[in-house]
Amino acid sequence: MADRPRFPGTTHGNPAIDGEVLPPPIDPERFRHIQLLNEAVLVAFAAAPNPRTPWGWSTLAWDVTLPSTFLPGVHVEVVLFGEGEQIVPAQGTRPARPYNETLYTLVVRTPLAVRQLGQGTLGIDFGACVELPQRIDVIRDLIRTEVKRAFPSSGQVTLRGSEIGVDFGINSFVVDIPLKADVPHWFDADIAMQLGLEVFPVDGRVGARYGFSRTTVSFGTASAILSGGCSAAVAKALEAACDGFFDGFIGPAIAGQLRNEVQAGMNTAVTEFNRGRSPPYKGHDFALTDFNLLVRLCPVSAPPAPSDHGRPGGGGVGPVNG
């Protein structure tokens, strides 16, 4: 059995004492701050309405009783987290219209301590929204078009054949690109490229991000013999150069072009959907799967923003933990 930690003996020569290593004692000043914050009381923490419509407003409201104990030079702050960090008064309200479902947290803090008073989620009611599916083969064709644009037939690295594979995941996909390279003063190379990208909603718009590239270079069996074994080293160097080139230029460029094309396609679909409709709909978000691109459209009918004053009240933002 392993030896248990032992405390060292004292300067008076007492023997060491068996026992667990204890945590260091808490700083007395920090302990006073913790005791101070324990006096705070959460009276109310609420949002109304909750859930809200996608383009509608809610009002967050809170009421905190601050500690009655006074520590010289110590100020107790009430802080609201959710859409960033905001120092707020002990009692008040504020309008809220985050784009997505949002978790709000109310805390009190001093320079040496912090205590969470309440937490809850402001949800979104998508009951009036509709889902508009887009054919996955259209998205696949868009991806292939952007890849072909990146490798024109006049370049040193060109497409090898016409088959470009596209494997879809959740809001992501991997493209298999067969290439050939004209290497000056060397053997021509076959290049197998895998390119990973993501598409995702950003406040009702399309975002796209280049993820990774993996390159495999082959000069063929004959090159290994005729080059005296040097082709393997050249292949490694070319693989590294291709990955660097994709990371720095081609990958982000394809992602940017793809984002623009998908956004344009979604805009066209929404325009067609809105013909003769009142109120109009606009895209809130979307999900890409291996079956389709599912666009969620919601009616645009938001009330004016609520005033940023008043007293707490109304429905809750969710479970409140005191």
Score class of each variant (00 low, 15 high):
180 K>L: 11
224 A>H: 13
31 F>M: 14
21 V>W: 13
314 G>V: 02
130 V>Q: 06
88 V>L: 10
249 F>W: 15
106 L>P: 09
302 A>T: 03
230 C>V: 15
223 S>Y: 06
106 L>I: 06
8 P>Y: 08
35 Q>C: 11
306 P>R: 07
130 V>K: 05
321 N>V: 14
20 E>K: 11
17 I>A: 14
57 W>G: 07
133 P>C: 03
137 D>S: 02
142 L>V: 02
52 R>N: 10
296 R>N: 00
202 V>M: 08
133 P>Y: 00
70 F>M: 12
53 T>Y: 10
322 G>P: 15
307 S>Y: 13
167 D>C: 03
159 L>G: 01
66 L>S: 02
149 R>M: 12
90 A>E: 08
5 P>M: 09
294 L>C: 04
94 R>V: 04
30 R>C: 11
246 F>V: 09
15 P>Y: 12
308 D>K: 12
213 S>P: 14
200 F>M: 04
177 I>H: 04
207 G>V: 02
290 D>R: 00
57 W>T: 06
235 A>F: 03
89 P>G: 03
295 V>T: 01
259 R>M: 05
240 A>R: 10
39 E>G: 06
197 L>V: 01
90 A>G: 05
4 R>K: 12
229 G>I: 04
126 F>A: 11
120 G>W: 00
195 L>F: 12
21 V>P: 13
85 E>P: 08
77 E>D: 15
21 V>I: 14
171 N>M: 06
84 G>A: 00
274 N>H: 07
42 L>F: 09
179 L>W: 07
65 T>L: 14
259 R>G: 00
205 R>S: 10
127 G>I: 08
85 E>D: 04
27 D>C: 04
223 S>D: 09
65 T>N: 15
143 I>N: 01
28 P>A: 04
216 T>E: 13
126 F>K: 10
267 N>H: 15
316 G>T: 05
105 T>N: 10
86 Q>R: 15
246 F>L: 15
190 D>G: 07
217 V>A: 01
164 I>M: 09
174 V>D: 01
129 C>W: 08
194 Q>A: 01
183 V>D: 08
215 T>W: 10
103 L>F: 05
268 T>D: 15
233 A>F: 13
306 P>Y: 08
310 G>W: 09
317 V>S: 01
127 G>F: 11
300 V>G: 06
223 S>L: 06
197 L>D: 01
77 E>W: 14
139 I>C: 00
9 G>C: 02
186 W>T: 03
212 F>D: 09
32 R>S: 12
71 L>Q: 06
263 Q>K: 04
24 P>G: 15
48 A>Y: 14
213 S>D: 05
151 F>H: 00
100 N>Q: 13
309 H>R: 15
67 P>F: 04
229 G>T: 03
166 V>I: 09
34 I>C: 11
307 S>E: 15
60 L>S: 00
302 A>E: 09
77 E>G: 11
266 M>Y: 11
231 S>F: 06
260 N>F: 07
67 P>N: 03
166 V>D: 00
298 C>A: 04
122 L>N: 00
257 Q>R: 13
228 G>S: 02
155 G>R: 12
186 W>S: 04
47 A>S: 06
57 W>A: 04
111 P>R: 05
196 G>P: 11
79 V>E: 01
